[in-house]
């Protein structure tokens, strides 16, 4: 069986931004709209199932976000979407929730989509890292379509006190230097996830989201 992927550049792909009621989730929706998506901040299972791609945003505390995600009935849907081959993007705490656990809330299991743990940024630097920082994209990930047009060391905006440490180092797509080397972006199958906030990272962030909208436009014509 052959899979055919066909680009339809005229189409605004439907991007479901999972809405579980916390803080500023609208920024991701607005930035994706700006980048050419039909983005919907939603908790509607039907809409999420119909979407071309799915985004899991998040800010604040890992445990509070996980509880809200479960309360909104979206945890299983997120796991399903991350495993069904559609492009999936996790942002900040939305990225962290893809891991198995976090030292910030050890009693609250994560979604377990990326095997590994969220660990505190090693002591000796201010926490949170609340600043722009320059990515180092891993050699094996330079060709990832999510990094297209971004240059060799783009500036992105970070707000975090913990970072992801995957069991498989091959999942690490990019790192950043902040006292030590921190993992800043991840790729595992159809899942891409960023510790930084592309929706708040000016032109570089919008380029990355445009890339995500672009891969969301590739539709599997074998259905």
């Amino acid at each position: 069986m052959t899979e055919t992927l066909q680009a339809r550049p005229d189409r605004r792909p439907l991007v479901a931004v999972l809405d579980y009621g916390i803080g500023n989730l609208r920024s991701a929706e607005r930035a994706l709209e700006h980048c050419g998506a039909d983005a919907r901040l939603t908790n509607d299972p039907g809409l999420i199932a119909a979407a071309d791609s799915v985004v899991l945003p998040g800010v604040g505390n890992f445990g509070a976000c996980m509880r809200s995600l479960h309360a909104a009935g979206l945890a299983d849907l997120a796991v399903g979407a991350a495993g069904d081959g559609r492009p999936f993007l996790g942002i900040c705490v939305g990225m962290q929730m893809l891991f198995g656990m976090s030292e910030e809330a050890p009693s609250e299991p994560g979604l377990g989509i990326i095997p590994g743990a969220i660990r505190w940024i090693p002591a000796g630097v201010k926490r949170p890292q609340m600043q722009w920082n320059q990515l180092s994209i891993g050699d094996a990930h330079r060709g990832d379509p999510m990094f297209a047009g971004l240059g060799s060391s783009p500036w992105l905006y970070f707000v975090h006190s913990l970072h992801g440490v995957p069991e498989d180092p091959a999942d690490i797509a990019a790192t950043v230097e902040y006292g030590s080397t921190l993992n800043a972006a991840f790729r595992r199958g159809s899942v891409f996830a960023t510790q930084f906030h592309p929706e708040k990272s000016a032109a570089a962030g919008l380029q990355l989201l445009t890339n995500f909208v672009g891969v969301s436009r590739l539709v599997n014509t074998d259905g």
Binding site: R30, K200, S201
Partner: peptide, 8 residues
């Protein structure tokens, strides 16, 4: 502002 400006 949030609709059109994408910095914090």
């Amino acid at each position: 502002v949030a609709d059109q400006v994408f910095i914090p």
